[in-house]
Design a protein around this nucleic acid. Structure first.
Length: 842
DNA sequence: TTAGGGTTAG
């Protein structure tokens, strides 16, 4: 008997491999060609073998069959494990064959606990462990997941059937799938045994290497194989497609055409799939023609791949044509069509198809419902999404992908409560589930929820690179630099820093947290910058009021400035950013020039955000009537942002007459927004038109408008402190108040407050609509008290900063010598030495 | 060896 191997603890993957090598070198059994092929197959398909029942029945001992044996056999046949167990425990007169039966049932039911009981009975009753009963025990343990115990029994067995070798190796293979070197050690053994030139064995090895992403080794095997069959070629094409190398797959396909091997339908399927993943429509059409000639187009599987190719290439007419010409369509055909229309943004057509398919009696499966949920999500149609959800519940179409698609649909339709409901009811969540939820909270302006879930996630599953891109916008939205830096550390530790999405999200986070220098240095050290990287940087400079830096970044992007790299062409979003930059810095000439370039050179049709930037730019630079004319000439209906930009301009340049006209347009669009009424009231009071102020105040109180609550927050040592106007609850409230009083006195002495008399004139009005509340002043005061001298004070506000607070920040930056970065709902203000980066353009 | 789905920044 082979000496039993003892394991002191649960084994590492490395140890499994050593054991498996040991298995292969076992002295008694010579591996057959089939067993080697089987071994590599086990990697590829996770093929799970059952020891056939006949194996156990052929060589059982001749014990007398008692009533108990017959009874247990019957219960096993019926699958009633509990009853069979009861009988096994009751009688000692049980033969080896019966133990085999019950162990088989334990394995099938994955009942390790019962299996162990049977094993104990066998031992305590002194039943001989022959190769058949031993094999069955091994089978039971391995199937139930206890490979270590299975191996212990395996080593006790004297004579092994080759099937058990394969089975044991398969079990180890499954466990060792994640190991880099394992494939190579099997490969070495294959060569040693002289199977290196055998087509069938090598085909399996090639597939194994591709499965493991080891493309070079797969290629080497292929290159050295003297005789290749159709499966060799197909495996190569398929392997390259699966490893996202469709171009190489195509090279192989071309070479196959010149070889003596003729293609089969699997070749066609792989080649068409390669075209699909490359969006190579013309090539796909050529193969289509070839397939028609060779009559491959009779097969449903091929036609489905073809349909999917057209759908992925965006040619929905061709996809529909294939669909119509098909002899038999399946749920796969319908799903490919639905997915195609969804990708094209034609969600209504996808939904229509879904309904049609149900009408035709084709039953949607998990793939279909995930596609249709995606369509509802991109359409934002919560109602349709809910209908699909009901259908899923009624028909019990369950899978993790379906749950994830449901969470995503609810998140994209803005219903995070429904999304969380699905999440909490999903028993086994994967990384996609967590990422979808965290990203959903971030996008739905629920950053605290996103951060809470992120913390919870870490105790259950390892976050990945996508998690980073989901959580970083939440840090950005809270302006939580501490949290953002913490995540950056995590990114570096886990090696996500080569991911372009992660880097872009980090730069964006630093920009939105006001850490312009950190954003800039990360941007500069990032070697590969894509359009989004550049646009984030330009948008960042824009929101910080660094117009010239934004312009030079835009220029750098378009030039061949990086070594050996071609310049990048701007798109719609880049122009939004650069126009923003111009308007935030009052760069009239440049802005107008960019607008022209966008429309004339790049043929980009302006969107509302482009128009808004232009109106903002004209208004800020005093071109009020031009701005008004610009709005009137717009081919689309202006929104409140556009009119609002002009109204701000009217205040800045004291044009009461135009302001009245503009305000009426906004009041019509946003009758509930108190901010607009206050803005007009300020314009009146600055022009000392007290009667108009009074009329407006009456209008506001008559409407009984909702009060907007302004709030500001500051992060100190990782804690976020939130302030609302007139807040006295903060334990430091008294200290802050006396500090602010002192500052106000000094400002008065300096004559600073003379400049802000306009904003303060109508205090009643201000109290009534309670728009400002000067919460930013409280947060700044708290920062002065709590942060060491020399540290920048970073405050965020959910509305635009008020004039008085702005003046105070300027004063503090000069007279107290503190740098302040204030983020309001519109832009950043950097205060230093008595100046603000906005230079009045806010 | 062979078809379809869900999460990712401006």
């Amino acid at each position: 008997m082979t000496k039993a191997t003892t394991f002191s603890s649960w084994v590492s993957p490395d140890l499994h491999i050593r054991n498996q090598k040991h298995l292969l070198h076992h002295k008694n059994v010579k591996p057959t060609l089939r067993s080697l092929q089987f071994l590599s197959q086990s990697f590829n398909t996770l093929y799970c073998t059952r020891i056939p029942a006949t194996l156990t029945l052929t060589t059982t001992s001749n014990h007398q069959v008692t009533d108990y044996n017959a009874g247990i056999f019957r219960f096993c046949e019926m699958g009633n494990l509990q009853k069979a167990m009861d009988l096994v425990c009751k009688s000692e007169e049980i033969d080896s064959k019966t133990y085999c039966h019950i162990l088989q049932l334990c394995a099938e039911s994955k009942a390790l606990h019962h299996g162990k009981t049977v094993h104990n009975l066998i031992c305590s009753r002194g039943i001989e462990l022959d190769s058949v009963l031993g094999s069955k025990l091994v089978f039971m343990y391995v199937t139930c997941g206890d490979v270590r115990e299975g191996r212990r029994i395996f080593d006790k067995i004297e004579k092994h059937h080759v099937f058990l070798w394969n089975f044991m190796m398969n079990a180890y293979a499954k466990m060792a799938l994640g190991n880099e070197n394992f494939g190579e050690s099997i490969h070495g053994y294959v060569l040693k045994l002289g199977f290196g030139l055998d087509c069938t064995v090598v085909n399996s090895m090639i597939a194994l290497y591709f499965k493991r992403g080891n493309i070079d080794n797969a290629r080497k095997l292929f290159d050295h194989l003297p005789e290749r069959d159709v499966i060799t070629w197909n495996t190569m094409i398929n392997g390259y497609v699966a490893n996202s190398l469709p171009e190489t797959a195509f090279e192989v396909f071309k070479n196959m055409l010149y070889s003596t091997v003729s293609m089969d339908s699997a070749t066609m399927v792989s080649a068409v799939a390669a075209c699909a993943s490359m969006s190579f429509l013309t090539l796909g059409q050529t193969i289509h023609a070839f397939a028609v000639k060779s009559e491959f187009n009779k097969e449903t599987k091929f036609n489905n791949t073809l349909l999917d190719m057209y759908s992925k290439c965006g040619d929905m007419d061709a996809a529909l044509q294939v669909f119509k010409n098909m002899n038999e369509s399946s749920v796969v055909s319908w799903t490919s069509l639905i997915a195609g229309y969804t990708r094209k943004g034609e969600s209504h057509k996808a939904i229509e198809l879904f309904l049609n398919m149900k009408k035709k009696g084709v039953k949607p499966d998990t793939f279909t419902v995930t596609s249709i949920l995606h369509a509802c999500a991109s359409n934002g149609s919560l109602e349709k999404g809910k209908e699909v959800h009901n259908y899923i519940k009624e028909n019990q179409i369950q899978s993790l992908a379906v749950s994830n698609a449901l969470m995503d649909m609810y998140a994209k339709c803005g219903s995070m409560d429904d999304s969380y409901h699905v999440f909490s009811e999903t028993p086994f969540k994967d990384i996609v589930s967590w990422n979808t939820m965290i990203g959903g909270y971030s996008k739905n302006s629920l950053p605290s929820e996103a951060l809470t879930l992120f913390t919870k996630m870490q105790s259950e599953i390892k976050p990945d690179n996508i998690t980073m891109t989901c959580i970083l916008p939440a840090c950005a939205s809270l302006a939580s630099l501490n949290k953002g830096r913490e995540i950056h550390t995590h990114v570096l530790k886990k090696g996500f820093s080569s991911d372009q999405f992660v880097i872009n999200a980090l730069i964006d986070m630093y920009m939105k947290c006001g850490a312009l220098l950190l954003a800039k240095s990360l941007f500069e050290i990032t070697k590969i910058k894509n359009l989004v990287t550049w646009t984030i940087m330009i948008a960042g400079y824009a929101m910080h009021g660094f117009g010239h830096e934004a312009l030079s970044t835009f220029k750098r992007m378009r030039e061949n400035n990086e070594k050996g790299k071609r310049g990048i062409e701007p798109n719609e979003a880049s122009f939004t950013s650069i126009l923003h930059a111009c308007s935030h810095s009052g760069l009239l000439k440049e802005g107008q020039e960019f607008y022209k370039i966008m429309v004339n050179e790049f043929k980009i049709e302006p969107k509302l955000e482009h128009y808004a930037s232009m109106v903002d730019l004209l208004s800020k630079t005093g071109k009020l009537s031009e701005a008004y004319k610009f709005i009137k000439k717009m081919p689309v209906k202006p929104n409140s942002t556009i009119w609002g930009a002009l109204l701000c301009g009217c205040r800045f340049h004291h044009d009461v007459k135009l302001a009245e006209k503009v305000a009426e347009e906004i009041f019509e669009l946003e009758p509930e927004n108190t901010g607009n009424y206050l803005l007009l009231a300020n314009i009146y009071s600055e022009a000392e038109k007290w009667e108009e102020v009074k009329v407006l105040r009456d209008r506001v109180s008559k409407r009984g408008l909702k009060k907007n609550v302004g709030c500001s927050w500051i992060e100190i040592k990782g804690e976020v402190y939130i302030f609302v106007g007139g807040d006295k609850e903060n334990p430091e409230a008294k200290k802050i108040e006396s500090l602010l009083d002192k500052l106000k006195m000094e400002m008065k002495k300096d004559g600073c407050l003379d400049r802000v008399k306009y904003g303060l004139v109508d205090e009643d009005m201000e109290k009534e609509v309670k728009v400002c509340g000067h919460s930013e002043k409280l947060a700044m005061g708290f920062g002065i008290l709590k942060l060491a001298h020399g540290r920048t004070i970073r405050v965020s506000k959910n509305m635009r900063v008020c004039w008085e607070c702005h003046e105070m920040a300027k004063f503090v930056s000069k007279n107290v010598g503190r740098q302040i970065v204030l983020r309001d709902s519109n832009r950043f203000h950097h205060f230093k030495d008595g100046f603000c980066s906005c230079r009045g353009y806010w």
